[in-house]
Design a protein around this nucleic acid. Structure first.
Lengths: 256, 256
DNA sequence: TTGTCAGTGTGTAATATGTACACAATGCTT
DNA sequence: AAGCATTGTGTACATATTACACACTGACAA
């Protein structure tokens, strides 16, 4: 299968791979609302000052030459949030050729990344952070939290990328121990329930929710020696990954 | 963020993207065994005839310029199996820089795809086929089925890619209606159980299995007017996606 | 012809889980 | 002191999971 060769010229290949990028959907939870971290994107006409583009995008970047995908995602996360060692998971790769075909996006790319290929594949990563840990002054100053059901105008195909991340998050929420990533280390069951309600977009019964989560051995009451035993100072729990790994059984291999 | 530019020369960019490929893990089921379709890879020294490489690989190919990822996967599948319209799902993207660093793989790439980048990202697709439909003479003649627990020596990082596909398949088997894709349209519950046992690698109790799958409304008895009512000619069932879509409820949003 | 075998089909009892639903105690605010 | 928001708890019914044993048939071989 020998091929005839033509020669193409690509610039800047030493810096990054011009057609592979990672996009991080960073979820946070506060005010009982599930939020996404977005960065403002503004492009003005250099001469007239007219605003040509003003919308928001996810945190993303091209993959560097010789860089592992996961490392690229961690790098982007670190750059934008200052955070390290947080939940990060690849969930889908977006590779339709039309995904950057919007004229605004083309203009943005030509202006900021002229060497970018016109067929960029984006590997989507989903990150769950305790949003209290993100210092607001870190990273790009035009970075803000938006509730997932009140998203602003979004560049590229980032609306689809966020929706698919939401699907993945909702799918996993009851199946894997990931909810805790969005909460402080010590949390109350009410906080946890609020989180589930915000992510799933439904209301849950408090008694049943408690019954259900407390039968998971990995949600552990820390006998907070509160003198004040009043119901107003709720009990705190922690998540133990160790216990989770020990006690998880493949529920669905019934009847070995 | 203006960048200094160096110029790199890439050949054949009009034919395919030199650093993005798709790999298809094609699962089939026969002789009560879960199998994967693999292609032999042989490289001989041109002068001495010595065999330098002899192992197996998945079906894969570079993504063509301007081609959607999903289309690339369908194309590869069509080329290798002659099949169309079968279950195909992206499940993970492999992007570690070391994944092609084995000397044999380097040799293979230099010989067959000299223009390939040294950092190829592979998007893994998982396909489930009724293996009876694959005409054995279609596609590459060195293509064969291997039981997933008796894999031959594999090129590139294809062992990891297969294992991850297996994980994804096992994870989904009870959660999504995908088992049927590996069986003929009409199947018996015994066939279905054998499939579950083969995929999960465990034994299941027949009575409990039947009880469990028959409470799924989308597994429908087709009252095959068998004159012969003997237990020796077992009942056949079909899967109805329509019924599935209607009756599936998010089991895990209990208690709205 | 009979016996053996492999394949098919079925039921029950004990336990665990899911679901619907209501009230009482507390401390804070007014 | 009344009202409010918050926390915590239990029961009854329905459904799902699990363990477990036997009878029927046809094919085949003795």
């Amino acid at each position: 299968m020998q091929r005839k060769c033509k020669i193409y010229i690509i610039k800047n290949m030493e810096k990054y791979i011009n057609n592979i990028s990672v996009d991080c959907v960073i979820f946070g939870f506060n005010s009982n609302t599930l939020k996404v971290l977005l960065t403002e994107r503004i492009l003005k006409d250099k001469k007239t000052g007219e605003i040509l583009i003003s919308d928001y995008t996810l945190q993303g970047h091209h993959v560097l030459v010789g860089e592992n995908l996961d490392d690229a995602a961690h790098r982007v996360l670190k750059e934008k949030t200052g955070l390290d060692n947080i939940y990060l998971e690849q969930y889908y790769t977006f590779g339709d050729r039309s995904r950057l075909s919007n004229p605004k996006d083309q203009l943005w790319i030509r202006t900021n990344f002229p060497e970018t290929s016109n067929h960029v594949v984006s590997v989507g990563y989903l990150s769950l952070v305790n949003s209290a840990l993100i210092k607001p002054d870190r990273g790009h100053k035009f970075t803000k939290w938006f509730p997932v059901d009140e998203l602003p105008s979004l560049g590229f195909d980032h609306y689809q990328i966020i929706q698919k991340a939401l699907d993945a998050l909702r799918y996993k929420l009851w199946r894997e121990p990931i909810g805790f990533e969005l909460l402080p280390e010590k949390f109350t069951l009410t906080q946890l329930q609020n989180l589930y309600e915000a992510v799933l977009g439904i209301k849950l019964d408090r008694r049943n929710f408690r019954k259900k989560v407390l039968q998971m051995k990995h949600i552990i009451l820390i006998s907070d020696p509160q003198k004040n035993t009043s119901p107003r100072s709720p009990q705190k729990y922690i998540f133990s990954r160790e216990v989770y790994e020990k006690t998880k059984k493949s529920r669905l291999d019934f009847n070995i």
